[in-house]
Amino acid sequence: MTYQAASGPVEALAGISASIGAGEFVSLVGPSGCGKSTLLRIVAGLRPATRGTITVAGRRVTQPIPDIGMVFQAPILLKWRSILENVLLPAELAGKDPAKLRPRAEQLLEMAGLAGFGPKLPRELSGGMQQRAALCRALLLDPPLLLMDEPFGALDAMTRDDMALELLRIWGEKDLAREARKTVLFVTHSIPEAVFLSDRVIVMSARPGRIAADLAIDLPRPRTVELRATEAFGKLNLELFRALTGKTSMGTAL
Protein backbone atom coordinates (compact mmCIF):
# COMPACT_ATOMS: atom_id res chain seq x y z
CA MET A 1 0.00 0.00 0.00
CA THR A 2 1.29 3.43 -0.77
CA TYR A 3 -0.07 6.79 0.00
CA GLN A 4 1.10 10.17 -1.06
CA ALA A 5 -0.66 13.24 0.12
CA ALA A 6 -0.16 16.90 -0.34
CA SER A 7 -2.93 19.33 0.17
CA GLY A 8 -3.54 23.01 0.32
CA PRO A 9 -3.70 25.43 3.21
CA VAL A 10 -7.26 24.45 4.12
CA GLU A 11 -6.18 21.11 5.49
CA ALA A 12 -2.94 22.57 6.79
CA LEU A 13 -0.82 19.78 5.44
CA ALA A 14 2.05 20.47 3.11
CA GLY A 15 4.51 18.42 1.11
CA ILE A 16 3.77 15.12 2.76
CA SER A 17 4.89 12.16 0.75
CA ALA A 18 5.48 8.68 2.03
CA SER A 19 4.67 5.14 1.18
CA ILE A 20 3.83 2.36 3.54
CA GLY A 21 4.49 -1.28 2.79
CA ALA A 22 1.89 -4.00 3.23
CA GLY A 23 1.87 -5.43 6.74
CA GLU A 24 3.80 -2.48 8.10
CA PHE A 25 2.86 -0.88 11.42
CA VAL A 26 3.44 2.83 11.03
CA SER A 27 2.84 5.45 13.68
CA LEU A 28 2.25 9.10 13.02
CA VAL A 29 3.46 11.31 15.88
CA GLY A 30 3.10 15.05 16.11
CA PRO A 31 1.92 17.97 18.20
CA SER A 32 -1.78 18.76 18.50
CA GLY A 33 -3.14 20.42 15.42
CA CYS A 34 -0.40 19.23 13.07
CA GLY A 35 -2.97 17.50 10.91
CA LYS A 36 -2.37 13.88 11.89
CA SER A 37 -6.04 13.10 12.24
CA THR A 38 -6.85 15.02 9.07
CA LEU A 39 -4.26 12.97 7.20
CA LEU A 40 -5.81 9.79 8.52
CA ARG A 41 -9.23 10.87 7.29
CA ILE A 42 -7.83 11.83 3.91
CA VAL A 43 -6.32 8.34 3.64
CA ALA A 44 -9.74 6.90 4.48
CA GLY A 45 -11.33 9.02 1.77
CA LEU A 46 -13.49 10.79 4.34
CA ARG A 47 -12.02 14.23 3.58
CA PRO A 48 -10.96 15.44 0.18
CA ALA A 49 -7.33 16.34 -0.35
CA THR A 50 -7.14 19.70 -2.11
CA ARG A 51 -3.91 18.70 -3.78
CA GLY A 52 -2.03 15.45 -4.07
CA THR A 53 -3.17 11.89 -4.24
CA ILE A 54 -3.62 8.91 -1.99
CA THR A 55 -3.27 5.43 -3.38
CA VAL A 56 -4.35 2.38 -1.42
CA ALA A 57 -3.56 -1.02 -2.90
CA GLY A 58 -2.89 0.56 -6.27
CA ARG A 59 -6.21 2.43 -6.39
CA ARG A 60 -6.50 6.16 -6.04
CA VAL A 61 -8.67 7.24 -3.10
CA THR A 62 -11.34 9.77 -4.06
CA GLN A 63 -14.20 8.61 -1.86
CA PRO A 64 -14.54 6.46 1.26
CA ILE A 65 -13.04 3.06 0.66
CA PRO A 66 -14.44 -0.07 2.26
CA ASP A 67 -11.01 -1.74 2.63
CA ILE A 68 -10.26 0.01 5.89
CA GLY A 69 -11.08 -0.41 9.52
CA MET A 70 -11.19 2.70 11.67
CA VAL A 71 -10.71 3.08 15.40
CA PHE A 72 -11.20 6.51 16.95
CA GLN A 73 -10.16 8.06 20.24
CA ALA A 74 -13.58 7.37 21.73
CA PRO A 75 -15.07 3.89 21.28
CA ILE A 76 -18.27 5.48 19.83
CA LEU A 77 -20.28 2.33 20.35
CA LEU A 78 -24.03 2.64 19.83
CA LYS A 79 -25.48 2.85 23.34
CA TRP A 80 -28.64 0.92 22.45
CA ARG A 81 -26.90 -2.05 20.89
CA SER A 82 -25.25 -4.94 22.65
CA ILE A 83 -21.51 -5.33 22.22
CA LEU A 84 -22.02 -8.13 19.70
CA GLU A 85 -24.51 -6.01 17.70
CA ASN A 86 -22.03 -3.15 17.74
CA VAL A 87 -19.28 -5.36 16.39
CA LEU A 88 -21.67 -6.50 13.64
CA LEU A 89 -22.64 -2.95 12.67
CA PRO A 90 -20.15 -2.67 9.76
CA ALA A 91 -21.79 -5.71 8.14
CA GLU A 92 -25.19 -4.03 8.28
CA LEU A 93 -23.87 -0.68 7.06
CA ALA A 94 -22.00 -2.33 4.20
CA GLY A 95 -25.12 -4.26 3.18
CA LYS A 96 -23.85 -7.68 4.22
CA ASP A 97 -25.70 -10.35 6.12
CA PRO A 98 -24.82 -9.91 9.81
CA ALA A 99 -25.98 -13.44 10.62
CA LYS A 100 -23.20 -14.87 8.46
CA LEU A 101 -20.55 -12.79 10.22
CA ARG A 102 -21.77 -13.61 13.70
CA PRO A 103 -19.29 -16.45 14.27
CA ARG A 104 -16.44 -14.16 13.20
CA ALA A 105 -17.67 -11.41 15.52
CA GLU A 106 -17.80 -13.84 18.42
CA GLN A 107 -14.33 -15.10 17.55
CA LEU A 108 -12.98 -11.53 17.50
CA LEU A 109 -14.55 -10.77 20.87
CA GLU A 110 -12.96 -13.88 22.30
CA MET A 111 -9.57 -12.90 20.86
CA ALA A 112 -9.94 -9.45 22.40
CA GLY A 113 -10.65 -10.95 25.81
CA LEU A 114 -14.34 -10.09 25.65
CA ALA A 115 -15.77 -13.60 25.52
CA GLY A 116 -19.16 -13.58 27.22
CA PHE A 117 -19.56 -9.82 26.94
CA GLY A 118 -21.40 -9.99 23.60
CA PRO A 119 -24.89 -9.56 25.07
CA LYS A 120 -23.88 -6.69 27.40
CA LEU A 121 -24.61 -3.04 26.70
CA PRO A 122 -21.60 -0.74 26.16
CA ARG A 123 -22.21 1.14 29.42
CA GLU A 124 -21.68 -2.09 31.32
CA LEU A 125 -18.05 -2.25 30.11
CA SER A 126 -14.99 -0.27 31.19
CA GLY A 127 -13.37 2.24 28.83
CA GLY A 128 -10.61 -0.16 27.89
CA MET A 129 -13.07 -2.96 27.18
CA GLN A 130 -15.22 -0.64 25.07
CA GLN A 131 -12.17 0.32 23.03
CA ARG A 132 -11.36 -3.36 22.51
CA ALA A 133 -14.91 -3.86 21.26
CA ALA A 134 -14.35 -0.93 18.87
CA LEU A 135 -11.22 -2.69 17.61
CA CYS A 136 -13.24 -5.87 17.01
CA ARG A 137 -15.76 -3.78 15.05
CA ALA A 138 -12.95 -2.36 12.91
CA LEU A 139 -11.65 -5.88 12.22
CA LEU A 140 -15.01 -7.48 11.41
CA LEU A 141 -14.81 -7.21 7.63
CA ASP A 142 -11.12 -8.16 7.67
CA PRO A 143 -9.84 -4.93 6.12
CA PRO A 144 -6.24 -4.97 4.85
CA LEU A 145 -5.68 -1.49 6.27
CA LEU A 146 -6.34 -0.38 9.84
CA LEU A 147 -6.48 3.34 10.62
CA MET A 148 -6.28 4.22 14.29
CA ASP A 149 -6.73 7.77 15.53
CA GLU A 150 -5.29 8.02 19.05
CA PRO A 151 -7.23 4.92 20.04
CA PHE A 152 -5.76 4.74 23.54
CA GLY A 153 -5.70 8.49 24.14
CA ALA A 154 -8.64 8.46 26.52
CA LEU A 155 -7.40 5.55 28.64
CA ASP A 156 -5.37 5.68 31.84
CA ALA A 157 -1.63 4.95 31.57
CA MET A 158 -1.77 1.36 32.84
CA THR A 159 -4.69 0.31 30.66
CA ARG A 160 -2.96 2.05 27.79
CA ASP A 161 0.21 -0.06 28.05
CA ASP A 162 -1.90 -3.20 28.34
CA MET A 163 -3.86 -2.23 25.26
CA ALA A 164 -0.65 -1.72 23.27
CA LEU A 165 0.37 -5.32 24.00
CA GLU A 166 -3.15 -6.55 23.24
CA LEU A 167 -3.16 -4.70 19.94
CA LEU A 168 0.12 -6.30 18.87
CA ARG A 169 -1.21 -9.72 19.82
CA ILE A 170 -4.47 -9.23 17.90
CA TRP A 171 -2.49 -7.79 15.00
CA GLY A 172 -0.72 -11.14 14.86
CA GLU A 173 2.85 -10.08 15.57
CA LYS A 174 3.60 -13.59 16.84
CA ASP A 175 1.32 -15.76 14.73
CA LEU A 176 1.33 -14.20 11.31
CA ALA A 177 4.01 -13.68 8.72
CA ARG A 178 4.67 -10.04 8.01
CA GLU A 179 2.85 -10.08 4.65
CA ALA A 180 -0.21 -11.63 6.25
CA ARG A 181 -0.55 -8.89 8.86
CA LYS A 182 -2.71 -5.85 8.40
CA THR A 183 -1.14 -2.57 7.46
CA VAL A 184 -1.65 -0.19 10.38
CA LEU A 185 -1.50 3.57 10.37
CA PHE A 186 -1.55 4.64 14.01
CA VAL A 187 -1.87 8.25 15.15
CA THR A 188 -0.65 9.07 18.64
CA HIS A 189 0.70 11.82 20.88
CA SER A 190 2.92 9.42 22.75
CA ILE A 191 6.45 8.79 21.49
CA PRO A 192 7.02 5.69 23.69
CA GLU A 193 3.72 4.22 22.50
CA ALA A 194 4.71 4.81 18.87
CA VAL A 195 8.16 3.25 19.38
CA PHE A 196 6.75 0.27 21.26
CA LEU A 197 4.16 -0.57 18.59
CA SER A 198 5.68 0.37 15.28
CA ASP A 199 7.96 -0.77 12.50
CA ARG A 200 8.31 2.84 11.55
CA VAL A 201 7.51 6.19 13.10
CA ILE A 202 6.77 9.30 11.07
CA VAL A 203 7.12 12.57 12.97
CA MET A 204 5.05 15.51 11.81
CA SER A 205 5.79 19.13 12.59
CA ALA A 206 3.20 21.71 13.60
CA ARG A 207 1.06 23.64 11.11
CA PRO A 208 1.41 23.34 8.27
CA GLY A 209 2.00 19.66 8.90
CA ARG A 210 5.19 18.40 7.32
CA ILE A 211 7.21 15.27 7.81
CA ALA A 212 10.02 16.15 10.22
CA ALA A 213 11.44 12.65 10.54
CA ASP A 214 10.78 9.15 9.24
CA LEU A 215 12.48 6.60 11.45
CA ALA A 216 12.62 2.81 11.16
CA ILE A 217 12.16 1.05 14.51
CA ASP A 218 14.33 -2.04 14.23
CA LEU A 219 13.48 -3.47 17.62
CA PRO A 220 12.87 -7.23 17.72
CA ARG A 221 9.33 -8.59 17.58
CA PRO A 222 7.37 -9.78 19.45
CA ARG A 223 7.69 -6.73 21.63
CA THR A 224 7.66 -7.30 25.37
CA VAL A 225 7.17 -5.25 28.50
CA GLU A 226 10.92 -5.56 29.21
CA LEU A 227 11.69 -3.83 25.93
CA ARG A 228 10.59 -0.54 27.44
CA ALA A 229 13.54 -0.67 29.83
CA THR A 230 16.24 -1.24 27.19
CA GLU A 231 18.79 1.26 26.03
CA ALA A 232 17.78 0.88 22.39
CA PHE A 233 14.19 1.79 23.29
CA GLY A 234 15.36 4.87 25.16
CA LYS A 235 17.62 5.99 22.32
CA LEU A 236 14.82 5.80 19.79
CA ASN A 237 12.55 7.74 22.13
CA LEU A 238 15.15 10.47 22.50
CA GLU A 239 15.81 10.65 18.79
CA LEU A 240 12.11 11.04 18.05
CA PHE A 241 11.73 13.56 20.83
CA ARG A 242 14.44 15.69 19.26
CA ALA A 243 12.86 15.42 15.84
CA LEU A 244 9.51 16.45 17.32
CA THR A 245 10.70 19.44 19.33
CA GLY A 246 13.68 20.46 17.21
CA LYS A 247 15.74 20.56 20.41
CA THR A 248 19.01 18.79 21.00
CA SER A 249 18.71 17.88 24.66
CA MET A 250 15.88 16.94 27.00
CA GLY A 251 16.97 19.62 29.45
CA THR A 252 16.27 22.58 27.21
CA ALA A 253 12.79 21.33 26.58
CA LEU A 254 11.87 21.51 30.24
Binding site: R41, Q63, P64, M70, A74, I76, L89, P90, L93, A94
Partner: peptide, 16 residues
Amino acid sequence: DMLDLGRVFNAPKWKI
Protein backbone atom coordinates in the same frame (compact mmCIF):
# COMPACT_ATOMS: atom_id res chain seq x y z
CA ASP B 1 -17.02 9.94 14.16
CA MET B 2 -20.09 7.71 14.18
CA LEU B 3 -21.20 9.27 10.89
CA ASP B 4 -17.68 8.83 9.48
CA LEU B 5 -17.98 5.17 10.37
CA GLY B 6 -21.16 5.02 8.33
CA ARG B 7 -19.44 6.73 5.41
CA VAL B 8 -16.49 4.35 5.47
CA PHE B 9 -18.91 1.56 4.59
CA ASN B 10 -20.70 3.67 1.99
CA ALA B 11 -23.93 3.22 3.92
CA PRO B 12 -26.85 4.99 2.22
CA LYS B 13 -28.41 7.98 3.99
CA TRP B 14 -31.61 6.13 4.88
CA LYS B 15 -29.62 3.34 6.51
CA ILE B 16 -27.70 5.79 8.69
